[in-house]
Nucleic acid binder design. Structure first.
Lengths: 406, 406
DNA sequence: TAAACAATGTCAAGTGAATTAACATATTTG
DNA sequence: CAAATATGTTAATTCACTTGACATTGTTTA
């Protein structure tokens, strides 16, 4: 099993084993004992006793109960939920979700608010802070109690700089110092990431791909993007734009995409395309419950998904078509990446096998046997919250490892 | 810069810094000083002095001369070329190449021999050993002087087991204990890898992608495969079949491929396809110097490449067509992986820009701006020897780090 | 040319995270 | 209840690394 997500900073190579132990404790479902730690890290029991002693003294870890067999009952260790609280902030193209979590990454409270990302950072970010400032006191938590926060946005991120690259969906955000701006207003360390990347992290830590070594999370929202977790580490690529599966060309002269090209996956299977195809169908007189909506061009992807769920055959077919296109692109990904699991997230993933079956079928047909036999294709377990939970994981990584530093 | 290729075994986490220093010395072009090591590893000068002292005492490293500026001249360090010799063995579908190298990975001697991989391991492997046994004594090196060897084969490898997965081009090799068999006959540790994977390693260490963090090596031979080096580490995927770019579907109802599907990249742009398209053109009466060859179905990819080189316009067009198909698949790879560099290797890569320009053009057209702007697309510098050199790097990794262990 | 400066490299004492080897504790089993 | 088994702790020791002083080797300046 992969052990670390946290990129260990150079200054702490010294305490490598302490950080390794901390991550093993964090991500072990149901806790882990000292002896199991010693086996996995490769240290002696004595060394682990000493390391765990430090972690308990720092109030990061506590002892709990677990099961056993044979001799003496092992003492289970888990993160101390009261060591502190963090925020996970998921900024989408039309909304923001903020999650308050404790040390165990348990969600204590949550808030949603609409947002229009095209309005740029000067409008959006103050809105986000405003939402937090009015909501947080009601949860019984002061802003000063927050140890760290992580934010994700739907575009490629230059993570060292805390800015976004050149996102087509985020006009005006280019070069704005998102992380620094938020750190100042929230008064705590902030980490900036990509939504699909954090989705991958969330599903890896607490979702469908728990503990897998190689995971791809496909976020099918307004756009389509992938977050990659390879050999147990988030993979960002050279300029932070790895995983841009949405702009793979599938159909030579297909419909035009927001990126300027034709026939991109996003233009064939994304939320925008789903709505568009629904409207086209209606104008051609296809039989569907959506025909009642007026004006027809107010139909959005959410409507199509809801109708498909209710049993609307036309909308179900639209979803299935999306599945085949997604499957084609995912087959390429499976051939190239050879992952353990592909997790499908975003709105349409709620439809489960209706979407997944055509994906699975296409992947089986279009990728190498060794690769498709090894891969599971599942819907996101954390659903709408995959990315926010990934942000929580990231925020906890920051504060846990920072405190463990000394 | 990426520092390690060698996957550090658990037992040596203790000497982490010693291994880090060794790799920095190995891959620093023109040597590296103690002070530079201390900066890059993050240790004090005193600690580096001690570590380097150990390495010199073990005869792995020696002092050499370099340039300076300012105060005292730094003493450059390099691997001691005489610490030992290794073999790099590249098994292709029709040939085997064996390279003898010293500690600095300098090629001392080389041998080529034909081979038919479809004859299975019981025929091929004894042939390989036979080639080595007759050639090696002439180089002034006894088999007993070889510290380690690395072998690559053109199929997915289960590297822990030292066997191949389920390669379509390698019937009969499935489950044969290639590594163990060779270790016994050669009397030294052997590492088994995939040809594209070792090609990536070779070009990363001494070729076109020297020291890059994220590199993809595309081997265009009889088949088409990619080796991936991500975040400075070889990436193999879950079952060792990552990088199978050759079986990405490009054309829905395209020509049939060896894998059973239709329209795979390999069936459109691989060596087999190149020869096939040449024969088809001839039978249609196209004007080409290849028409002289008789019978027409004896034409192979090598002939087409040679003709294109001589200026045969028909053959050049075939190569350009291959370039566009390769470009389409590489555009997907660039979108997904966002690499620093894509290195094109194999026979056709000798043609340089004739092949690369259509690739570059297609990638520019079909991938995201942030990604194609960041990526270089180059031909392999090591040419035919990319994989064999990667094998040398791997073999040296084994012996250097094993000796440094204690 | 000598003195000052600058950078690299080494040495010796001290620190702390690990190992080793013995012991303590808790739970199941005969 | 004793024996067996597994987990966890303790104290002495080891060794990689830091600290701070010093040595070496080069350039620059008075």
């Amino acid at each position: 099993m992969a052990t670390t997500v946290w990129q260990i900073p150079k200054a702490s190579v010294k305490n490598l084993n302490k950080h390794a132990a901390l991550d093993l404790i964090r991500f072990a479902p149901g806790g882990i004992s000292r002896i199991e730690l010693s086996r996995q890290i490769g240290l002696t029991r004595a060394a682990v006793t000493s390391i765990v002693g430090d972690l308990i003294e720092a109030r990061l870890v506590r002892e709990a109960n677990g099961q056993h067999s044979g001799g003496r009952k092992p003492i289970n260790l888990e993160i101390n939920p009261d060591f502190g609280r963090v925020l996970g902030i998921d900024i989408g193209s039309t909304h923001v979700t903020v999650v308050l979590a404790n040390g165990l990454a348990q969600v204590l409270n949550e808030v949603n608010a609409p947002l229009d990302i095209t309005q740029g950072p000067e409008i959006c970010l103050p809105q986000v802070v405003q939402v937090i400032n009015t909501w947080l006191p009601n949860t019984g938590t002061g802003l000063s109690e927050i140890l760290a926060a992580a934010v994700d946005v739907p575009g490629p991120v230059v993570s060292d700089a805390g800015k976004v690259g050149a996102p087509p969906i985020m006009p005006g955000w280019d070069n704005f110092p998102i992380r620094d701006w938020l750190e100042e207003r929230l008064g705590c360390p902030v980490s900036l990431g990509n939504d699909a990347e954090f989705g991958a992290l969330g599903e890896w830590a607490f979702g469908a791909g728990r503990g897998e070594k190689n995971l791809a999370y496909i976020k099918v929202g307004t756009g389509v993007g992938a977050g990659l977790l390879l050999d147990g580490q988030i993979y960002r690529g050279t300029t932070g734009s790895a995983g841009e599966i949405g702009h793979i060309t599938l159909v030579e002269d297909g419909p035009i995409c927001t990126c300027g090209n034709h026939g991109c996956l996003e233009a064939l299977a994304g939320g925008r395309s789903l709505a568009l195809r629904a409207r086209e169908g209606i104008s051609k007189g296809r039989r569907t419950s959506l025909a009642e909506i007026w004006p027809a061009n107010s139909i959005i992807a959410k409507d199509v998904i809801a109708a498909a769920r209710r049993g609307d055959l036309f909308c179900q077919q639209l979803v299935i078509d999306s599945g085949y296109h997604l499957g084609t692109a995912i087959a390429s990904l499976v051939n190239l990446i050879n992952p353990d699991i592909v997790v499908i997230g975003g709105g349409v993933a709620q439809l489960g096998d209706l979407l997944l079956d055509p994906i699975r079928q296409t992947v089986k047909q279009r990728s190498l046997k060794v690769s498709w036999q090894a891969v599971r294709i599942s819907a996101a377990i954390l659903g709408r919250r995959s990315s926010a939970m990934g942000a929580v994981v990231q925020a906890l990584s920051m504060s846990l490892h920072q405190i463990a530093q000394v």
